[in-house]
Structures are given as C-alpha cells and as structure tokens.
Design a protein around this nucleic acid. Sequence first.
DNA 1: TACCCTTTTCATTATTTCCTCACGTTTATG
DNA 2: CATAAACGTGAGGAAATAATGAAAAGGGTA
Lengths: 221, 221
Amino acid sequence: MTDILLAEDNEEMAGLLCDFLNADGYSVIHCTNGEEALAEFERNGARLVILDIMLPGIDGFAVCRKIRESSNTSIIIVSAKTEKDDMLNGIVSGADDYIEKPYDIDILLAKIKGIFLRRYNSEILSVGFLKINKSRRSVFKNDTPLELTQKEFDLLCLLAENEGKTLNKDMIFNKIWGLDSFSEPQTLTVHIKWLRQKLEDDPKKPAHIITVWGVGYRYER
Amino acid sequence: MTDILLAEDNEEMAGLLCDFLNADGYSVIHCTNGEEALAEFERNGARLVILDIMLPGIDGFAVCRKIRESSNTSIIIVSAKTEKDDMLNGIVSGADDYIEKPYDIDILLAKIKGIFLRRYNSEILSVGFLKINKSRRSVFKNDTPLELTQKEFDLLCLLAENEGKTLNKDMIFNKIWGLDSFSEPQTLTVHIKWLRQKLEDDPKKPAHIITVWGVGYRYER
DNA sequence: TACCCTTTTCATTATTTCCTCACGTTTATG
DNA sequence: CATAAACGTGAGGAAATAATGAAAAGGGTA
C-alpha cells in the first residue's frame, strides 16, 4: 500500500509536493482527477489521501465521501476557496484535516507527519536512498524492498540513525548483541558483510557502510 | 469518562461553548488552567481535549505534550495568535487539530463532530479486502463471510488495527491471552495458522499475515 | 453422558538465521 | 618492503524460530 495518495490536477504543484514528500520518505501516488484517485484507492488503498477540492470531474468532497463509505483512512482536503461553507463541507464530508491554498508546505508536511505518527506510530527514517520504517521493520532502497534479517535490520538502524558518525565496534556489539553476549566480536564483521551485500551497489567497494580502521563503522548516504 | 475536557480561562467564552456542546449532547468538564486540566485528565480521562494556548500557568502546548506522553486521545488546540510558528508548535506537540480565535463556533462544532464520528463510531474496520465489524464480531472477505472463532477474531482485530506495523509476539500474546495466562506461547503460532487457512488465498504463502522472523507478525492488506 | 466445537499441547519437520573458523586481503607502521 | 594487526570472505553446521499435524483437553448444550 502506498503511504500517500495525492489528487491534484495542477501538475506543477503536485510535482513539487511529491518531491518534498519523497524526500521525507513517503511513497506517493499522484492522480490528476477524482475518478482516477478513487480507482487507485480501491485498488491499492493509501494510508493518507490528500485531496484538492477543485478536481476535474468528481470534486474533492465527493471523493472524500466515497472513500469514507468504505474506509477510515486519513484524509486531508486542500482548498483554494476560503469560505466557511467550504471548510464545513470538508469536515462534514469526513476529512481529518483541511488546509487552504496557498499553503505553507512546512505546515502541510508537519500535519502529515503528525498524522503518520499518531496513527501508524511509524517514524520513517529517510537516509539518502534508503527508507527505513522502524515500526514495520521494512527497508527500501530506491523503492525496492530489502529483505533484512533481524540482526541486519537492527544494525542498519543503529548505523543510519547515527549517520555520518563513526560508531565504535564495541559499542555496536553491546547495543545489538547485549552486554551479556557470549558471541565472538568477529561476528559483527560477518553481519556487516551481509548488510553490504544487500544494500551496497558494489559490496566490494562499500560506499555507505564505511570501515573506520581500528575504530568501527560509519554510515554515509 | 467525559466526552470533552475544555481548558479555557475566559469564562464567558467557555460558558458559551459549554452550552453549545451540551446542546449537541456532549458531556463537558471545564477547567480554567493547565494544572487543573492535567489533573482532571489524569483522574478521569476524556475522549476529546480542547486546549486554549494562553492558559495561566502551564500553557496549552505543554499540556498537550504532557497528555500525549500517556495517551493518544484527540486534542484540539485553540489559539488567538495566528502565526505559523504557533501552528507548527501545535502540530508538533501532538494536537489532532488546530483552530484560530476568533473562530466560528459552527466550524469548531463540525470539527468535533467529525472527530467523534471517525474515532468512536467506526465500528467497521475496513482493511483492503477485509471488513471487520467489531460490535457484531463478524468478518467479510470480499463480501463473503468468514467464520472465525473468538481467538481468531481477536487476533485478526489486533493485527488489522495495527495494519502495516510489526507486532511483537509477546505483545500479541499478552494482549489476547492476558498477562496472567499459563498457555504456551507456542499456541499463538497455531492460531496464526488457523487464521491463515481461513483468510489467505494460499495459506502456504501468506500474503497478508506476514511473519517477521525473530520478532512477530504484521498484517498487510 | 454424548456430541460438537474451540482451544491447547506436544512432537516433529521445515526453515531461517546466526555463529565459528580458517584463510585471504587490506592497512598502518617501522 | 616486511610484518603484524585489523578486516573481509566463504562455507558448513549449530542454533533458534516457525509451521504443521494429530491428538488431548476443555466447555457448553441437548
């Protein structure tokens, strides 16, 4: 399922917003009219729907009501008009939130972040070409999913959360294996290898999981 | 539990709003400062909290954050200021919605109605091809009913409500069997099997109830 | 009690992940 | 350039975890 379904007929606006959303780590599908949006929603669903009111064909309110018939997904309505009736209409149609054009993109992004946090508890960690969803325990490399094992995932999270910072081997080991572990420290390097094989373009020449000699490892985007 | 906890220091405003809310059938408790509101929330909770920002003592943002530490109840923040920062602050603090003074009381009432509808009236959980009616305890897969046992139903609800989120096995077990259960944790995997046989197209290759090795399970639509 | 249905247990198999170890490669240093 | 220490690699097997099938236990009801 996509994170966000965006229904907006202004290509320029939509493109810009998509870029921002992608940068924040959300997967986005863009439709330019109401029918398309409804069809897409029926097929694949979406965690959040952003609806422009002034869509060609079916308008945003109608799309909103239609979606609400079968789903309680989150919906934000975007409107150019600033009339009270419009706002009321949006709320009555079942939208979770309402924002007026021209809107400040930071505010929209903050609203979205809030919705995802409250609703899915899902902090999406977006580091360069990687998207790590900690609550799902899933990782995407440029939109293709990576199948990581438990240890690999934990390791990657630790490194990515400390992106650009060199982490001591002992520290990594203790965090992931626990202080009371009896495993050989060497085991860490093996897991690093596997991680590299899964996410580096050329595992022989790691560009993201960097070895820092005598110290540990560092994640670079 | 009260329907609405209103934190507003302006008595006149509060009185008016209370009247309207009562007229719409909500039970309301009114506090005039942050401390009082927090104490009341701790004691009795509330389905929705309406917070004025400019409260004597602790301000609305702080109250909001404090409540969010322990609860995901709905929160609306009311502010006289109209600055972007204020709005962002509200969203970041974890409010569900934000309204500016002077507000149109109809709009506020509509927002409230929307929140209650979405949040407490949504007995029907619609997740992809599944429709779960929690009060009737019935489940439909593409309009054909599934006959689930009690445990299967509870398990499915838990997974579906947390769609897309990987749930720890222990957590699942504790939620469904209770903390004081003496059953073998193994019994969970057996029920997972039953569930898969009833709702997966190919139970051998589960597409919806996903195993996350070493962690637990995740529902995907 | 006998029946039916649900739930649990248990033993077994299947699968995935993890660890170790030996050996090869790279790096820092004198 | 030689050397030692640190790191990387590959493979086999151990260990951990899940899935399965069958059977027993429990609970409600006629």
